[in-house]
């Protein structure tokens, strides 16, 4: 279990369509089941496929915080996409911020059209390494494919966050929420993806 900061500020970031809103909702529901208060701020609106999206999740022992995390005050950043992870880390991170990130780029349209250049993904990871106190990098999209569907990368990332030991509650809170929210095939897929994320982050060598 992680050391608790009051409030614990977590940012889940990615690209519209990657399922980070659902991931933040699962995180919040797990926290509430564990007895915490939560506030989530979403940036919807521009969340059409392809736009940058982020969710601010604030977990408190006893208080309702505002839905937005002040700049420079994120404790944890869960990045579904390398460029978005770096972007958010620059704005909301501080030297103690810990990052859990997916290594799979999702190219902005300007890059697909050959008009802009997406930085070398290895350099993004390197930049995050230099800025963050700790960076857990994992191939979440690949692990989701192994679990049955690349769309479940959000649950791989949620599993990784849980397995990182940075939260004040355990994985059983998450699996309880996944059990309640989903049924049948989707539940099994999400559960497998969650486990894969947890295992990946706990396996030696994934953490720097």
């Amino acid at each position: 279990m992680g050391e608790f900061r009051e409030p614990l500020n977590v940012i889940v970031t990615g690209v519209g369509g990657q399922g980070n809103v659902l991931a933040s909702q699962v995180l919040a529901a797990a926290a509430v089941e564990a007895g915490y208060r939560v506030s989530i701020g979403e940036t919807f609106g521009a969340s059409q496929r392809g736009g940058s999206v982020m969710s601010h999740v604030r977990i408190s022992r006893d208080r309702t915080y505002g839905p937005l995390i002040p700049r420079g005050r994120a404790h944890l950043i869960v990045g579904f996409e390398p460029l978005e992870t770096l972007r958010i880390l620059m704005d909301y991170g501080n030297p103690e911020t810990v990052v859990v990130m997916n290594d799979r780029p999702n190219y902005p349209i300007g890059c697909l059209l050959g008009e802009e250049k997406y930085p070398d993904p290895h350099l993004i990871v390197e930049a995050v390494n230099r800025l963050a106190a700790k960076n857990h990098v994992l191939p979440a999209t690949e692990l989701a494919k192994e679990a049955g569907n690349s769309m479940a990368a959000n649950m791989v990332m949620t599993g990784a966050l849980s397995g990182s030991g940075l939260l004040p509650f355990g994985g059983d809170r998450f699996t309880g929420v996944i059990e309640t929210l989903f049924s049948g095939e989707v539940r099994d897929l999400n559960m497998r993806a969650f486990q894969k994320g947890t295992e990946a982050v706990q396996a030696a060598g994934t953490a720097r």
């Binding site: 690209v15 460029l83 902005p108 300007g110 890059c111 250049k117 930085p119």
Partner: peptide, 8 residues
């Protein structure tokens, strides 16, 4: 190089 993501 931090390309932005415009609406489409």
């Amino acid at each position: 190089s931090m390309p932005s993501r415009e609406l489409a």
